[in-house]
Design a binder for these strands. Structure first.
Lengths: 306, 306
DNA sequence: CCTTTGCTTCCGGTGGACGGAAGCCAGCCT
DNA sequence: AGGCTGGCTTCCGTCCACCGGAAGCAAAGG
């Protein structure tokens, strides 16, 4: 079996089409023949996916009719498919009749190398980082034009974050996102730079030229400091995590209260810790040279893998 | 939207059929008509699932032919389905041509209330517990006759565990498992007690009578101490986590070196911490009464029968 | 009582899934 | 080179499983 190197995965085209905002009414898509070019449901698997896509963080429990409506499927069809999904365990039906994502689906999902494989090796370092700062620590990978948060440790008293495990954010607005973008293939960078950079706060970078300069700075320093770009009260310090081929496969960050707020923290103090953790994870992932700055970073004895 | 109460989920029948151990040869299942009663693949979704089921912890990257063989599907069929899966992001194709579970699937999977919903609220307590012990901390739920590990914090220097996030273990052999079993519906308990209790070490409970007594003890004490039942070198202390309806929805445990080994730890010292953490999580989940204390067994107010 | 809303079952028509076969490409052996 | 193997992809005719309207149920509400 080939080793589980989390790789760039050049597979599907970047950027999924945004979910068609729940048409609500219009139960008129009938008669197989008349079925127009629907988004993603002209094949059975497509319909199944359109059902799964209906669930998100704000909709974790849905009734059959809600699913049918949101997926633009006739109720009877949805009924059958949902039944099959539930039979396998991809969905679970609660006592209230509502369907939720099932444990079985979570199980196979957790086999994704880009989540668990990465997560497992990163955890020890994230924990150290967490303990040192007692704030928010995050781990994210890139998928298309977005950063996907794979892991997060959050102190209950730390700054409240808008991100969540399993959530997505545009690359240009977050610390991890900027890092991932800075080291993404040129095509992706240009594509993002050419797109409209949505603004979240007054400090969000929306000027492509500024962003371009920022990315260059990140590449130079190996660290990103992102103050109040998504939430004025919080500041994040992020660094790249490299994999086997020395490619950047992930990014980690620490999020603390912005120094412009009471109790805020000066980012400078965090940089070394974040950098060190990122380097540690990279080493654990098998990245080649641990950067040439640090001398004599003797690789630790490889643990006997299970 | 109904609240995400992680509930027993009486949906699918307990215990999935074990994977049919990769038939290897026999590419003879041809001619749609002759297709005999195959395990789970007479419907499109069934075939899709049989593909997903091919992946497990020891097989996270598979080529098309491997998938086809393992799922007992003709290559061309597998090719089409796998293509659709990859197109959506349920699978990802690496540069080496092998398929892996995709990030997108992980994303929807992470919406499972029994994993993330639970995990999110439990994390802070698990972290405290982890920090207090600097050993292994685990969170698990029950699915059929098995415990599924939902989260785990492990110190690199702690005892090596056999369990993994996303992994399964029979209920009778582990600390969390015994807790989950002790509070499972009677049907499940009897079913497990009636089945063959596979032995992992010399100390694994294999006698139904002993197990029954152990479970009663766990119900009485609200804690399980499980020494060397799955690995002679490790001991686990586990406690139940209760949800809204006061039902046990999960279990947590701390795993430390067994006192019978050098550097072993006396379980007694851990019990209060584990119990406290479990109670904390229960409270965060909305469990009603924080359990009656050890002494002063004052009969609590009769719960409103749901 | 009737109405509404949501879930489940049924069943005939048909279009999409199916999979054998053939074409391709790389690697390997002789 | 030439042949061979093993894996991946494309093609296309057959046929059956999927589809979804319709009808039947059950519960909630007026």
């Amino acid at each position: 079996m080939t080793p589980d190197v989390p790789e760039p995965a050049p597979s599907r085209p970047v950027g999924r089409p945004p979910r068609p905002g729940l048409p609500a009414g219009s139960g008129l898509t009938s008669s197989r023949a008349r079925r127009g070019p629907r988004s993603g449901g002209d094949t059975v698997t497509g319909r199944v996916f359109s059902i799964l896509e209906v669930f998100d963080h704000d909709h974790t429990a849905l009734t059959l009719t809600e699913i049918a409506r949101a997926a633009a499927l006739p109720v009877s069809t949805a009924h059958r498919l949902v039944g099959e999904l539930a039979g396998w365990g991809a969905l679970e039906r609660g006592g209230d009749g509502a369907y939720r994502i099932g444990l079985r689906l979570w199980e196979v999902g957790s086999l994704a190398p880009r989540s668990i494989g990465l997560r497992e090796r990163a955890m020890p370092f994230l924990e150290d980082l967490y303990e040192a700062t007692r704030q928010n620590v995050q781990l994210a990978v890139r998928d298309g034009h977005e950063g996907v948060y794979v892991e997060r440790l959050a102190h209950p008293d730390a700054v409240r974050l808008l991100s969540r495990v399993g959530g997505r954010w545009p690359l240009h607005g977050t610390g991890v996102g900027q890092v991932l973008l800075a080291f993404a293939p040129p095509v992706v960078q240009e594509s993002v730079l050419a797109s409209t950079l949505t603004s979240f706060t007054a400090r969000t970078i929306t000027d492509p030229a500024v962003l371009r300069r920022t990315l260059a700075g990140i590449r130079r320093d190996g660290v990103a400091v992102c103050d109040g770009m998504i939430d004025l009260a919080s500041l994040s310090v992020a660094a790249p995590v490299r994999g086997e081929a020395d490619a950047v496969v992930a990014a980690i960050s620490v999020v603390v209260p912005s120094p412009s707020t009471p109790g805020g923290i000066e980012p400078r103090t965090l940089v070394p810790a974040v950098r060190a953790a990122a380097r540690g994870i990279s080493r654990a992932l098998g990245a080649p040279t641990p950067t040439r700055t640090q001398r004599a970073v003797r690789p630790e004895v490889p643990r006997p893998s299970s």
